[in-house]
Amino acid sequence: MKSLAELDKLREKLQEEMRLREGKEDVKVVVTMGTCGIASGAREVLTAILEEIGKRGLKGITVTQTGCAGLCHCEPLVEVERPGRDKVTYGHVNEKKAREIVVSHLVNGQIIKEWTIK
């Protein structure tokens, strides 16, 4: 059973981790969440990314959302931007692909070219 006391413990752990990371630039992950995105599964993709980051205990990743990017036919879209690199956009992402993007791109730095869109 989840309790608020458990949240206090989690907070203490996160505060310690934050002290260690201070000053480093984050990798940015953006999921588009317009109506087109939500209807094609962006919510599921977004939560899969969170879970994968949490499960692997990855630090220094900022996940955010944005509205329709005008590429409705390629939804769900996931953008990854590593500090000092060009932004990479993945299209037609599902939960499984989202988890693989976290492992391949965020952990190992390998772009999955076949899934990217121009």
């Binding site: 989840k2 608020l4 458990e6 949240l7 206090d8 989690l10 907070r11 752990k13 996160l14 505060q15 934050m18 969170l50 879970e51 980051i53 949490g54 990855l58 990743i61 996940v63």
Partner: peptide
């Protein structure tokens, strides 16, 4: 208020 400055949208917090 319980998080005392830790962002609510930290992945671990959202999973919790």
């Amino acid at each position: 208020s319980r998080l005392k400055g830790i962002s609510l949208d930290t992945p671990e917090v959202l999973i919790w």
